[in-house]
């Protein structure tokens, strides 16, 4: 570790309060004093953050800063990791997401997730989108289900491309199409929030632009949290940006401010390419 890096670690160590505007009135998700541990190692320190309704918030920061860990707390994906422990208050519309009475499957229908690598089920295009609606019993008959599949694919801009081959395997689609199919699958169950963990990092620039456009359109109806390594992407798609560093939430501000005049020196150092 060189001298400059050491001093950054020291700055993080001495940062106890997130700068900017991490809190909102009437948020969709409210997080207070969140701490996350992998066994004895603490990955997230005292995060306080509100996520606004029908807003896109992007989480940025160097590798290992905890942004993905934090994202996965928001629909209890960390439950699947035995050694992971989440503390603090994480509320979805004032409901405690970590309440023992909460049905996790239902929670994940309300808070959907799209992953870095497109992961369609090894089923047909149609079945990929219909799957969630079926297990959650969202439709009464085949006509309704057909309609839901069509609407979801239209909203993801995929309908025209796949309408004549709905019964073909989803794995035959291109990477960008597969990712949009995964987003269609996520929105088919009508979630309130969509979490996206680097959704474009495996896509080419054209497919990335299509997905970004989709994120913009979806934000009219959904709350979207996106983790991204691409700062330009964060600048393009989100209204608010949260900067994480070594497990701490350093700064949250309007995206337009973060990329022109960030408040915290670490945010500035990161987005100008002085730390990686």
């Amino acid at each position: 570790m060189n001298k400059a890096q050491q001093s950054m670690a020291e700055i993080v160590k001495e940062t106890y309060q997130t700068v900017g505007l991490p809190l909102l009135d009437d948020p969709k998700i409210r997080v207070r004093n969140a701490n996350v541990f992998y066994a004895d190692k603490q990955a997230i320190f005292d995060v306080n953050l509100d996520i606004g309704k029908n807003q896109v918030i992007s989480m940025i920061g160097p590798s290992g800063c905890g942004k993905s860990t934090f994202l996965r707390c928001l629909n209890r994906m960390n439950d699947t990791i035995d050694i992971c422990r989440v503390e603090g208050d994480l509320l979805l519309e004032d409901e405690d997401m970590y309440d023992k009475k909460i049905d996790v499957v239902e929670l994940r229908a309300r808070v959907g997730m799209v992953f870095q690598k497109p992961n369609p089920f090894p089923k047909s295009i149609y079945e990929n989108v219909a799957y969630g609606a079926r297990i959650h019993g969202l439709t009464d008959n085949k006509v309704q289900l057909d309609e839901l599949v069509e609407t979801s694919l239209i909203r993801c801009g995929l309908w025209k491309e796949v309408k004549d081959r709905l019964n073909e395997p989803a794995t035959g689609l291109s990477g960008g199409q597969q990712q949009r199919l995964c987003i269609a699958r996520a929105i088919a169950v009508n979630p309130e929030v969509i979490l996206m963990d680097e959704p474009c990092s495996a896509l080419d620039p054209i497919a990335t632009a299509t997905v970004e456009e989709l994120i913009h359109e979806l934000s009219e109806n959904f709350t979207i949290c996106i983790v991204t390594h691409s700062m330009q992407q964060a600048a393009r798609v989100s209204q608010r940006t949260a900067y994480f560093h070594l497990g701490k939430l350093i700064e949250v501000n309007d995206t337009s401010q973060v990329f022109t005049n960030p408040e915290h020196q670490l945010t500035e150092a990161y987005i100008t390419g002085r730390i990686g």
């Binding site: 400059a4 001093s7 020196q265 500035e268 390419g273 002085r274 730390i275």
Partner: peptide, 16 residues
């Protein structure tokens, strides 16, 4: 404010 961070160069020295 820690001077080292602010005066620290970019990872890309070419950019500096």
């Amino acid at each position: 404010m820690n001077e080292e961070v602010m005066v620290g160069g970019h990872i890309s020295r070419q950019f500096d």
